[in-house]
Amino acid sequence: MRTPSPRALAWHRRGVAFAAGWREFAKQKSGLVGLGLLVVIVLLAVLAPVITDRTGLDVTKATGDRLEAPSGEFWLGTDRPGRSVLLLTLWSARVSLSVGLIATLLSVAIGTIIGILAAHFGRWVSAGLMRITDFFLVLPSLVLAIALSTVLERGMGTIILAIGLTSWPAAARLVRAQTLTIEARPYIERAKALGGGHLHVITKHVLPAVLPLVFVNTTLAVGSAIVAESTLSFLGLGDPDPMRPSWGSMLRSAWLDSAIIAGAWWYLLPPGIAIGVVVLAFTMCGRALEAVLNPRLREG
């Protein structure tokens, strides 16, 4: 009998490991709840153009009165120009989620590369990179993001850049610490003694061991990125196009339109709750993943 090839075996093993990881994840109620919420919200955001009509976002074609309270027609009332708050909240999810995701991917990618390089190559490279990382880590990132988005042309791209370029140091430090731990393991010494070069050590040993952590970190960081997006938009640095609202820019309008004094709670609550729920969902997922991938936290 010929046994299956090692590659097939490796894939089979990964499948088994994934199944075991999923069972462990499923044991954590909060993780499941978070994942469920995310699936629903992402589906709603993706399907927004199918289930709603985008023209409702156009200020000139608004059908409702100014600051109308919730009713059968407008479930969550209207804003000052008379647009449906429900429609706005739904469409805002698209911008907030995509900015959060893309900015996080950007920052995690930068962080991972810098972290691995700083840990793998000693001396000068490491000292220089860590100096820069620590500098950016300490720097108040919102102030830097404000500066960046003030100077550059306003829009989604700028906001993504501003968040992505200012939030990578945490990931870099984390990845560096993990890489250092891995590189201190004797099997790295063994790989080098076998004749393996930098590329071999990084791709075969370091990356596979670091990626789960990076994944957890990404999940947790999306939440922060969404909050950062809302803050920048709230301060007026978001996309100026009213057809592309985000939860942050909705709250900015609510604030500028004195929704608090008008008692228009329906204008104030939905975007804020949406941010809170999405961020919490990402955080719950991330923490559950962390517990699966970091056995030390799981015990007890």
Partner: peptide
């Protein structure tokens, strides 16, 4: 894992997930 831990960690995570300015506006309201 105690009840105190679960409740206080949950509250902390929720507050941490909330945008600062929105919380301020809510308090104000």
């Amino acid at each position: 894992g105690s009840r105190f831990d679960r409740v206080s960690t949950g509250v902390a995570l929720t507050l941490w997930s909330t945008p600062t300015f929105w919380l301020g506006m809510l308090l104000m309201a």
